[in-house]
Design a protein around this nucleic acid. Structure first.
Length: 570
RNA sequence: GGCAGCGUAGCUCAGUGGUAGAGCAGGGGAAUCAUAAUCCCUUGGUCGGGGGUUCAAAUCCCUCCGCUGCUACCA
């Protein structure tokens, strides 16, 4: 029995995510998880908030809250937004939970024991006024190259040059503005990534055919440029503490780098799931040793996350010397841009998960985003394009099909599945076409080719409309009632099929479509077997409903209003 | 600066050596069951510019132009 383990890149706790993050990790993972469940595979979909690090500390301070309280609040918001989008996690955890603390410390101890960590002394900027170390980007000053006065210590935003905080002229704290800063020595743990290059290279090469070229290309770039060892501790408060038994107590008061503990939370969140459901050690069977041999592990993420999942986290696992599972299928996405520019939280530019749900149901977004997922290259959200896709694909091609068939049945067939007549050549030709198309749809889905999968889904809806035009029951009913009955019966069976095929993408709408005909199970199963059988499934005489308009069209005035509300739109 | 990716029809994108594709938009027609939705036909591209390899290049190589991202202490 194949089991499917799915993780989404963890959304950072700092605010509700925008549509780009949604499509690139949260939504794509959910769509695939539903597809797996629909096919009958035992599936575990895991996600969590990524909470640690200096960014959270500063965001909490800005919000006037204690860090823990800030995270509690943001966790609730993100969980609610995810649920509003129909994200069907088996568990949505938190990297700040006890399970992750224990597991992160466990991995660190294993790495230390195996000689894969070492203590090094680094120079860090310390702010006396803020009473804390400042990460490079929180030191600002004048760029020595271009004279820009608000250059950050890691990079000048004006001339894009990479900087060292020590390069800055008139350096000061970005937090308080204080110039009372100094450079201090600080000891840190470094993960000896460089020693794993041959192993990583071999592992990455073995996935040349089942990872997108985007992913292998980014991974190889890091190796080709000479993989450096990475500091995995930080001088901040909010994180997993480094245990005293590592580094002979030289790391007192330090915490692990957020990028060290965040991927470990994939495993820890699985333990949270087991703990919450009284499943004992079941979590290990998804991750560890022979028990997890039948698990295929899928990761979904934006391209910014790829290095940490192809280099950092694998080194953590390999270096532990324990048989934890490495990712099998890594799906990376490019950026979704907003109307030609970036989504920007600080500039309030673009659409965020909570506000998206205020204007339209989740399934509109789910369909649009997956149909236009940034797979091959960065892609661009515009309101006009969104309006066009929703109105044409969902309202006209799919929604109207369901509407015309069920309305006609109600008006002329007594609202029951008509049993007269038998399927003939026209129906067989349709079944042949749909056998091919449903097969292609399934294959694209399994290959994580979402754009192509949804293109095929749309073509299936079009095939339904084409059939109905040829069958023309509204004409046939005048001279040949049996033939009209065949057309309507097939039309209703197509509606049934559409409800099944759409479920992973649009779970709420798929349910509505399905329930126009008959009650729907919790998980609407993936169609299997020949279409000639599946499309002859409805019982003759079974009463059917006429659903309200499924997809309302988006009016031009709404587009104008949303452009104003969400900004950017020229 | 370095590295990577991209540049294909008005728009969004497929297509990695063998006679240029899809959807939308535009044009014409059919039908009238339906949210004036649907269906059929159709206009439209010297595949960013230039050079090269090849019997053959959107596809491989070089070069130029443009856009985007990354550059390891934001995540």
């Amino acid at each position: 029995m194949t089991r499917i383990l799915i993780t989404s890149a963890l959304p950072y706790i700092n605010g509700v995510k925008h549509l780009g993050t949604l499509v690139g990790s949260l939504l794509s993972a959910d769509v695939f998880a539903r597809f797996s469940r629909a096919r009958g595979f035992e599936t575990l979909a895991i996600c969590a908030t990524d909470e640690h690090g200096s960014t959270t500390e500063l965001a909490a301070a800005e919000a006037g809250l204690a860090v823990r309280a800030f995270c509690d609040q943001q966790y609730r918001l993100q969980k609610a937004a995810g649920e509003g989008f129909g994200l069907s996690w088996d568990h949505f955890g938190r990297s700040s939970n006890q399970q992750n603390r224990e597991l992160t410390q466990h991995f660190a101890r294993q790495l230390w024991k195996n000689g894969n960590l070492e203590v090094r002394t680094t120079k860090q900027v310390y702010s006396n006024a803020d009473k804390r170390f400042l990460s490079d980007r929180y030191v600002i000053g004048t760029c020595p190259y271009c004279g820009y006065e608000r250059a950050r210590g890691d990079q000048c935003e004006n001339c894009t040059r990479v900087l060292d905080p020590a390069d800055l002229i008139h350096p000061r704290s970005a937090i308080s503005g204080s110039t009372d800063i100094e450079i201090r020595d600080s000891r840190h743990l470094f993960l000896k990534q460089s020693e794993f290059v041959p192993q990583l290279r071999e592992w990455i090469a073995s996935h040349a055919n089942d990872w997108p070229s985007l992913v292998t290309s980014i991974a190889n770039k890091w190796l080709d440029e000479g993989l450096q060892d990475r500091g995995i501790t930080r001088d901040v408060e909010w994180g997993v503490p480094v245990p005293d038994d590592i580094g002979d107590g030289q790391l007192k008061g330090k915490v692990f780098y957020v990028w060290f503990d965040a991927p470990i939370e994939y495993i820890a969140a699985t333990k949270e799931w087991a703990d919450a459901n009284a499943k004992g050690d079941a979590w290990r069977d998804w991750w560890y040793g022979d028990a997890a041999k039948d698990v295929t592990y899928y990761e979904f993420m934006g391209k910014d996350n790829v290095p940490f999942h192809t280099v950092g986290f694998p080194v953590t696992i390999l270096g532990s010397g324990e048989p934890w599972k490495l990712v099998d299928r890594l799906k990376g996405f490019n950026w979704l841009n907003y109307d030609g520019g970036k989504f920007s939280t600080s500039e309030k530019r673009g659409v965020f998960m909570d506000s998206a749900l205020e204007i339209l149901p989740a399934d509109y977004w789910r369909y649009y985003l997956m149909a236009n997922a940034p797979e091959g290259s960065d892609s661009n959200f515009t309101w006009e394009h969104f309006q066009g896709v929703i109105n044409k694909d969902l309202a006209d091609v799919l929604g109207n099909f369901v509407n015309r068939v069920t309305k006609f049945c109600a008006a002329r067939m007594d609202g029951k599945v008509p049993g007269e007549g038998a399927y003939g050549a026209e129906e067989q030709a349709l079944c042949d076409e749909l056998d091919r198309r449903v097969g292609a749809y399934t294959d694209y889905f399994a290959a994580l080719e979402f754009r192509k999968a949804l293109g095929e889904l749309r073509a299936i809806w079009v095939a339904g409309n084409e059939y109905l035009t040829r069958a023309a029951p509204w004409t046939a009913i005048k001279t040949d009632p049996a033939r009209a009955a065949v057309g309507v019966r097939m039309g209703l069976n197509l509606v049934h099929l559409f409800g099944h095929l759409a479920w992973p993408i649009m779970p709420m709408m798929a349910r509505k479509i399905h329930e126009a005909l008959q009650p729907a199970p919790e998980i609407i199963p993936w169609p299997s077997g020949k279409m000639s059988v599946f499309l002859d499934d409805l019982e003759a005489g079974q009463p059917i409903g006429t659903p309200d308009v499924l997809f309302a069209k988006i009016a031009d005035e709404q587009v104008e209003e949303w452009k104003l509300r969400f900004g950017g739109g020229a």
